[in-house]
């Protein structure tokens, strides 16, 4: 690593503030529209249909069927999209923690798999490993939490 002499200055604070605002902005850009869509679905029969379809699968993780929306968004889009769904679905702390551990292991698959592939790993193996870790962690948290 090039160990260039780095110094702390007011620029450090400025950059921190800017990157904090950036993260918040990137997050808000996704959380607000997703939250709007999910809230909209809540007022239609669609959310109930999704809930019922996924209820048997999600119950293995101690999650309601509607939590599938957060898992799907988190994996196909990114964590911020999953956050947007989580905050609009009125879930309990336990349910949020289970979703969070599953999503931590497995999220943003299109972007992150491309990165891993660039380093030389097989895309299928990476996805298989991440999904397995998410499933095992979800089952374990449901069991012990």
């Amino acid at each position: 690593m090039n160990k260039t002499a780095k110094t702390l200055s007011i620029n450090t604070l400025k950059r921190g503030l800017i990157s904090g605002i950036n993260v918040t902005w990137e997050l808000a850009k996704i959380v607000v529209p997703i939250s709007f869509i999910v809230t909209f679905l809540k007022h239609t029969p669609i959310l109930n249909i999704i809930s019922e379809v996924f209820a048997p699968l999600m119950s293995m993780f101690g999650l309601p069927g509607k939590a599938a929306i957060a898992l799907v968004l988190g994996n196909f889009v990114n964590l911020y999209a999953a956050i947007g769904a989580i905050v609009s679905l009125s879930l309990s702390v336990r349910e949020i923690t289970i979703l969070a551990i599953m999503l931590s292991f497995c999220h943003s698959l299109p972007v992150e798999t491309a990165l891993a592939k660039k380093i030389g790993l097989s895309a299928i193996k990476v996805i298989a490993v991440r999904c397995s870790l998410a499933i095992i962690a979800g089952l374990a948290f449901n069991l012990f939490l």
């Binding site: 702390l8 450090t12 921190g16 990157s19 904090g20 918040t24 939250s35 609009s88």
Partner: peptide, 27 residues
């Protein structure tokens, strides 16, 4: 709903990102 979550996120993320820059710059 989303504004109150974003407010909570701001309260945590901004201080953490500032701390991260300090950790980066101070080596």
């Amino acid at each position: 709903g989303s504004f109150s979550s974003i407010k909570n996120i701001i309260m945590i993320v901004i201080p953490i990102m500032i701390a991260m820059e300090i950790l980066k710059d101070s080596g």
